[in-house]
Design a protein around this nucleic acid. Structure first.
Length: 266
DNA sequence: ATCTTTACCTGACTGC
DNA sequence: TGCAGTCAGGTAAAGA
């Protein structure tokens, strides 16, 4: 559920708390959370090294060290925050990064899907470009390169990084494009409309500090507000904000997809 | 190349 | 109140 706007909100708030700090210990409570994090790398390249920056790439949150990035993927129920003890403020703490002042960066994850890993370079992630940095031309090229349904293209992290189920549906509604439209059947005009809709949808969601459906929380424990402004996501049977006809819900590539049959056309 | 299925997991919710 | 069943969705891997 955390998508680009949620992770970007996390990044901004954690950056103010973590840059310049030096971790002295790591504790894993659920081994699979750090199954791809080599202890030798932790000891040689992360511990006792200063955090140079807090970055985001797609849906990954990264702590930047001189040697590379400690990456966190929140999957559906991940949370991150700073706390005074290693067990955190909820029952689902899976990992803690301890600092010399006795505080901890907590990674909490009820469903245990989240993972923490180290990469020397972000290109190892094989992600597509950032949707907020892409030109209209880049969007056009990505859409035209595939005959897959546009909803599937938006969710493919190797094509565009950071969009998930919620903001894919919201962007397609804003652009008045049917989720089953093949990417290479979008006219340049409609591709540009979708590109602008994606940017605007993501930027607005960042302004609202992300969406709290059930699990997502900002580092201070409070909820985001983006969910108050959804036009279609989670609104099956509710009136379309544009035409008042009921919102439909279908499956596209096994993902629930919300759209307006009247307003969104092929 | 692309899609489908399965696996990973558990809390929240629904219906009986 | 309890219990079974369903749903939620990001990604990797395997199979079609």
């Amino acid at each position: 559920m955390p998508e680009l706007p949620e992770v970007e909100t996390l990044r901004r708030q954690l950056e103010a708390l973590l840059v310049g700090r030096v971790p002295t210990a790591m504790i894993t409570f659920w081994p699979r959370t750090t199954e791809h994090l080599e202890p030798s790398i932790v000891n040689a390249r992360l511990l006792h090294q200063p955090i140079r920056g807090v970055t985001r790439r797609g849906k990954y949150l990264g702590l930047q060290f001189d040697a590379g990035w400690l990456l966190f993927h929140l999957k559906m129920t991940g949370r991150m925050y700073v706390w005074e003890d290693a067990r955190g403020r909820d029952p689902w703490t899976r990992f803690s990064l301890g600092f010399s002042d006795g505080s901890y960066l907590i990674f909490s994850d009820a469903r245990k899907f989240g993972r923490i890993r180290f990469v020397a370079g972000l290109e190892e992630l094989n992600l597509g470009p950032e949707p907020l940095d892409m030109t209209l031309q880049t969007y056009r090229r990505v859409f035209a390169a595939s005959g897959s349904r546009i909803k599937a293209i938006l969710l493919d992290q190797s094509k565009i990084a950071g969009i998930g189920n919620i903001y894919a549906d919201e962007s397609l509604f804003a652009a008045r494009i049917h989720p089953l439209t093949p990417g290479n059947r979008l006219s340049p005009v409609r591709a540009d409309r979708l590109a602008r809709a994606i940017r605007q949808t993501l930027l607005q969601a960042i302004d609202f500090e992300g969406a709290t459906i059930s699990w997502y929380r900002k580092p201070d424990g409070s909820a985001g507000q983006s969910q108050e402004h959804f036009q279609v996501y989670g609104r099956r049977h509710a009136p379309c904000p544009r035409c008042a006809r009921p919102i439909s819900k279908i499956l596209v590539n096994q993902r629930s997809t919300h759209y307006c049959r009247q307003c969104q056309r092929y």
